[in-house]
Amino acid sequence: MNQMTPPAQPDPALPPAVSVRGLRKRYGKLEVLKGINFDAHRGEVVSILGSSGSGKSTLLRCINMLEIPEAGTVTVDGTEIALVTRRDGGRRPADPRAMDQLRARIGMVFQDFNLWSHKTVLGNVIEAPTHVQKRPRAECIAEARALLDKVGIADKADQYPSRLSGGQQQRAAIARALAMNPAVMLFDEPTSALDPELVGEVLRVIRALAEEGRTMLIVTHEVSFARDISDTVVFMNDGVIEESGPPEEVFAAGNNTRLARFVEG
């Protein structure tokens, strides 16, 4: 990886890449998010830590509206996603097309990769650029090959996902998300479904992206990795943010017993 480029610094002068205010989400009686506020600035790498059920994955899914929050606002790259209240009390996007356009600018990487099984790796990567962004196919293919080279699986371009290892699939999924040239990348526990020996190759790719200065939100259990690459660490517990700040401050000893217990794991 390119060690010569210094890590990009967040720029607080610009509006935040992602801004979340008063976010609440419940599944039936269970309230998963109890009023979340946070900002991620351009070029900032934010790691979201927390135990299972703390609401961190739900928070990530609310940002690109794969889950619709009951209350609160999400602003991505200066655009607020307008929600209107349905007759049954839930909410839905006011303009589905605007939501699609916004989602196209948010790259998402899933725990289970979720590559499209009927398409080759290359087919997965060029699908959205050609059919959502409607860019010329040849241009998309060239870009896709460059991205696959970047994540180290250029030789797998014509393979189907089922022929790839988990680490290769996750790297293909990262290339797929990058192909849309997103304003922000969301990683939802990107290494949790991988065999231990395959975790490293995926983390290396994510680290390289962090060093490029991309805005990224990473939900993860890899504490040392988070400490290493993050500008900001957010610790969630029971639907609220308990700690938030630069890793050296958040991980300072004795600050939060729950966090300390989580870190010791």
């Binding site: 690109n64 899933f110 699908e127 797929r176």
Partner: peptide, 15 residues
């Protein structure tokens, strides 16, 4: 698989 549909939605595909 629900996940493959979600991945498409996350890319801005719908309908």
């Amino acid at each position: 698989p629900r996940g493959q549909i979600m991945a498409a939605q996350a890319c801005g595909m719908s309908g």
